[in-house]
Design a protein around this nucleic acid. Sequence first.
DNA 1: TAGTGCATCACATCAAAATGTGATTGATTT
DNA 2: AAATCAATCACATTTTGATGTGATGCACTA
Lengths: 212, 212
Amino acid sequence: MNQIRVSIIEDDIIVRESLVNYLELKSEIGDIQAFSSVEDFEKNYINPTTILPDIIILDIQLPGKTGIQGIPIIKQIIPDTDIIMLTTFEDSEKIFDALCAGACSYLSKRSTLSSIFDCIITVSKGGSYMSPPIARKITQFFIKKNSIENPLTDRQMEIAQGIVDGLSYKMIANRLEISLDTVRTHIMQIYRTLNINCKGQLIKWALNNKIH
Amino acid sequence: MNQIRVSIIEDDIIVRESLVNYLELKSEIGDIQAFSSVEDFEKNYINPTTILPDIIILDIQLPGKTGIQGIPIIKQIIPDTDIIMLTTFEDSEKIFDALCAGACSYLSKRSTLSSIFDCIITVSKGGSYMSPPIARKITQFFIKKNSIENPLTDRQMEIAQGIVDGLSYKMIANRLEISLDTVRTHIMQIYRTLNINCKGQLIKWALNNKIH
DNA sequence: TAGTGCATCACATCAAAATGTGATTGATTT
DNA sequence: AAATCAATCACATTTTGATGTGATGCACTA
């Protein structure tokens, strides 16, 4: 197997150097490049003949552009690269922002060097690795949707589903074979129950909860 | 530290026994229970004095109720337990269904016994562990949302945000300090651009894409 | 400089939604 | 037996939404 080319973008010189020194000893890894900012990284890859990294280890807190802002830039230069975030931040928002932007793994800086190495190997094999506390936050993201118990009756859910499907009251009435007025009554009741006052909020509620 | 109590729900006797035999050797783990179906598991916990497991290893393909159907049942009996899925299925749908239902980890049956053990330890510490290919599928779930580039202008996004927030056109006009007619014009333009024809679809689009 | 895209506003019309009050039926619970 | 709740339907009013046509000012670009 070819050696894995790794770039590190990290402003903290101690972290950066210790990572470089550690990874240099690994036979699986070759051609390690280190940068202290996204801008630095960009400069180096203006020349299209430059050898591109397979994997990038990216800090979030950087001078100039943040790591998260850097992800789309990096992806533009090297669309096929895999990005591993390595940061002190463990709040859900940053994690989701990074994943949405296109990071494939997210490591806490509290991770050991050997687990960072494991992550690189895992990612190079097409997998993905998360620090356990971060993985837990991600699983919790999925859970919450079902945890709120549904305060609507079955019939009300059918009405709500119609709304989410973009149907007019009239069409819902046809679909469920009831009168337009009944649909109205149901909807008013739904609004009361959910403490909302318009269709928009109902759709939002539905999409954030049960209905897909 | 106390020993971790583990229950295994797995119909394949070979998998089940090898797992039990392996885990019994581990000093971190005590009180291993094994069941061949969710129904079996339920029966055992009718008596409220039964010692409850900290962690449950759950197969998806089971006789009777599936593992995914079993999750809410298990959570009802033992709300605080952590559920690790251990299955041959690696398709996104099953993974997301399991996570939405409340599983906190998801392991491929191709995982080694030692990585299953690692997973148990990780989960018992409040973390979460995914097999690398599964973790990759989860990260991809997040990516796609942003990959569609936003066809709306900044101003149009502000209007759309108003709609998502459940405001009427009039309220949006007030918020952005423009006339009601301008809001209307923007919305018509948005509908054209997104190829939709009502508020509901716009909200759906927005929630499935950028806006939270 | 002419063209294009974006944001702004106005006028007009019809369809749809929001909201209230009131009433009936059947099932379930107390 | 009485009360409650879910689901059904009717009538009436006001507000909001959908849609079209037309026009102005600004910034950017070919």
